[in-house]
Design a protein around this nucleic acid. Structure first.
Length: 721
DNA sequence: GCTCCGTAAATCTAGACAGCATGTC
DNA sequence: CTAGATTTACGGAGC
């Protein structure tokens, strides 16, 4: 089907034609003929990179230009929100306003009211629904990207609830990977279903076993015995490869091993560019390894990397400078990062229950990364059989059908939070109304009834009443209480709120960072660091040493909570070091954490610290305690000791610059105001731009005496031209 | 009695959403 | 039933 034949507004077609797209792919055409342009719901289950985005763009624009209102595009990752936002930005040419919102930025509900397309993570949108922003009524279309995440244990329930909330109010376009029961999903959503495995780039799948590559069509290629040869071969042919492994350590090890084999195929300018790239990295144990790999044109990619490092690698791979990436599942879903050849080294993964097979769905998503639409005629995805039987792998992952999607609504933690939200934010007034709502979920559709779900809901309701999140009157009507409403708005687990609440009496008597951080680390919303065998005693000792600072008892060794407690102590200790200005690199080394891990811990602690304060405000807070908590929150956010709090409130002044200023004798705002700019500029990290911003922030007209003779290199003049 | 070295046993293991108010080095 | 890289523990050799 030609773009020009599309039954949509000519302006839409014009923009698409200008992208150089004249013809729709078959599944795209089929999707657009399904009635989705006339407002019908649609489940579109087609491979990644076969044009789901274009379909959703056409559907969104058609809807917006015809009916007005808003379209919401739901994604599972913040990085993906960013990516889609940039793509959709193009439609601003037609006067369509596009916004992205995640937990990171742009949170005010009403601010979003000005936009037509809103890209959001599922959780963020759930939160917006709870806050009841006025523009929600104007949402006419919801596009749910990667809707198979409905089956994810910890995050599936959110998506299921959003869709349940909106399925009668807005049109739904659900984009899914191929799953075992797409029909069931479509039935639930009262949607048309389109399933296709058509891809713009042909995908060849194969199994590699001891030097023999068995393609799915029966053809056979011979290689040297080690699977490294598959990667080297791709590079030799001027292409790239993506290697999937199951641990961070493996990713790092294989990257360094492969870099030695690949480096011989790099040109001189490439080597120089890679050197240059490596020199941009900061100095820490993880990036030292990364540098080593990068010099040979290979990089590893996992959640331990900092954001900067991750994007650096992704961009370099897209440019073709980095030839090979070895990755944990960070790259299996989401970001658009295709490669000619995908090599899957592992099909098992360690979980809480031991070694488990990686789901077919996930392996197929990895395989789907093979083949770059603009460069390759085919993409190759190869699974390495090392210990597994190659025939079995072929059956399971190449010819096999992906798993069915199962509702995860009954997951205790997720469900608890959702039941609370239904009562405090979505007007559910009694148990019968709760059951009515639950009967509309995918869970109910799939199981045929909600009996066991009701049983769980009842327990949760008791828990909520008992802990004063809600109340119940004589006619058995629910009454939302302040604690419940605030908890739901803060988007924290009610169990987290309960733990905070229970700790307040002790906390009030003895507010201290260690106790508070352990408390935060003990909530189900926090991620904790694992304590290795050899460290256990250290953290137990630390706990006993600081026992009187804790708001909880120290569990015995036999206690099932013992292991978790030690993790909490370790996490609290890291946070303690952070606010005591221990340099990041030392934290990485001491606690064996990667930059990405530290970032994550800090991000979560920041959010939970804020939530703790907000909840404390509900319980007749003492002024001095509240102030103490606020200061601690600020220290946590910036990673500083108390004495730097004043400085760190200045724009662009973080833990390093604040410390530099303080040590140079500028200990507060007053000192900065009275100081000569010249002296301030001597401080490490303080330049003209920074200083200008500080003065602006303080509302001071301080003519920077830039005309005075330049100190050293004359760069002050350069700055001003 | 101490250190060094090689081997066996033990250890450890992926990822990442949410609030709020604006900017790290 | 199914892992594999790396660290730690241990025991023997050499001084």
């Amino acid at each position: 089907m030609k773009i020009s034949e599309l039954p949509v507004d000519g302006r839409i077609k014009k923009v698409i034609l200008e992208r150089g797209i004249e013809e729709l792919y078959p599944p795209q055409a089929e999707a657009l003929k399904s009635g989705v342009l006339e407002g019908k719901n649609l489940v579109l289950a087609i491979p990644t990179a076969s044009g789901k985005t274009l379909v959703s763009e056409i559907v969104m624009l058609n809807k917006l230009l015809k009916e007005g209102g808003k379209a919401v595009y739901l994604v599972p990752l913040k990085a993906l929100a960013e990516e889609k936002y940039r793509e959709f930005k193009e439609w601003e040419r037609l006067g369509i306003r596009v916004a992205a919102t995640t937990g990171d930025y742009d949170s005010t509900d009403e601010w979003l009211g000005k936009y037509d397309i809103i890209v959001a993570t599922a959780e963020k949108f759930d939160s917006l629904l709870r806050h009841g922003a006025r523009w929600i009524d104007k949402v006419k279309l919801v596009v749910a990207d990667e809707v198979h995440l409905l089956g994810s244990y910890d995050r599936g329930a959110t998506l299921e609830m959003i869709l349940t909330h909106l399925m009668d109010k807005a049109q739904i376009l659900a984009l899914s990977a191929t799953v075992g029961n797409a029909e069931e999903l479509a039935e639930w959503l009262n949607a048309e279903l389109i399933v296709s495995d058509w891809r713009p780039v042909e995908l060849r799948k194969g199994i590699f076993h001891l030097g023999t590559l068995f393609w799915e069509d029966g053809k056979i290629d011979r290689y040297p015995e080690n699977w490294y040869s598959l990667v080297v071969d791709a590079v030799k042919r001027g292409k790239g490869a993506l290697v999937f492994v199951n641990t961070r350590r493996s990713a790092e090890k294989e990257a360094i091993a492969l870099s030695k084999l690949v480096s011989g195929y790099l040109t001189k300018p490439e080597k120089r560019a890679l050197e240059n790239l490596a020199s941009q990295l900061e100095r820490n144990p993880t990036s030292e390894k990364l540098k080593k790999a990068l010099k040979g044109g290979v990089a590893f990619h996992h959640a331990g990397l900092s954001r900067v490092e991750r994007t650096l690698i992704e961009d370099a791979f897209r440019e073709g400078l980095v030839k090979v990436i070895t990755a944990t599942p960070t790259l299996s879903a989401g970001l658009n990062l295709p490669a000619f050849r995908v090599v899957i080294r592992d099909t098992k993964r360690y979980s809480n229950f031991g070694w488990v097979d990686i789901p077919v769905l996930e392996i197929q998503q990895m395989m789907g990364r093979a083949g770059r639409p603009k460069y390759d005629k085919v993409g190759e995805a190869i699974i390495v059989a090392r210990t597994e039987n190659p025939k079995k792998l072929m059956e399971r992952y190449v010819h096999g059908k992906p798993e069915k999607l199962f509702s995860m609504l009954a997951n205790e933690q997720a469900f608890r939070s959702q039941v609370l939200a239904l009562i405090t934010n979505f007007g559910v007034r009694n148990f019968q109304e709760l059951v009515n709502f639950l009967s509309k979920t995918f869970y109910a559709h799939q199981r045929g009834d909600t009996l066991s779900l009701e049983y769980k809901a009842k327990d949760i309701v008791y828990f909520l009443i008992e802990n004063e999140f809600i109340d119940i009157d004589l006619e058995n009507n629910f009454i939302p209480l302040p604690l419940g409403k605030r908890t739901s708005h803060l988007y924290i687990d009610p169990l987290t709120a309960k733990k905070f609440k229970d700790a307040f009496p002790k906390l009030e008597k003895n507010p201290n960072p260690f106790g508070i951080f352990q408390l935060i680390a003990a909530t189900p919303d926090m991620a904790t660091l694992t304590v290795r065998r050899g460290e256990m005693e250290d953290y137990l000792d630390l706990a006993y040493e600081l026992e009187e600072k804790l708001y909880t008892g120290i569990p015995y060794y036999e206690d099932s909570r013992f292991q978790g407690f030690l993790s909490q102590v370790k996490t609290a200790k890291v946070l303690l070091d952070w606010i005591n200005e221990v340099p990041e690199v030392r934290i990485y080394e001491t606690y064996n954490v990667d930059p990405g891990d530290l970032y994550r811990i800090l991000e979560l602690a920041d959010w939970l610290m804020y939530s703790l304060i907000e909840l404390y405000k509900l319980f007749e807070p003492k002024g001095d305690v509240l102030q103490y908590l606020r200061d601690l929150h600020l220290r946590l956010r910036h990673g500083v000791r108390e004495e730097l709090l004043e400085l760190v409130k200045l724009p662009n002044i973080g833990r390093k610059r604040a410390r530099a200023l303080y040590n140079a004798g500028f200990r507060n705002v007053e000192a900065i105001l009275t100081a000569k700019p010249r002296d301030l500029l001597q401080v490490e990290g303080i330049g003209l731009k920074i200083l200008e911003d500080i003065y602006k922030h303080l509302g001071v007209e301080h003519t920077l005496e830039v005309k005075e003779k330049p100190k050293k290199k004359g760069n002050l003049y350069d700055y001003l031209k």
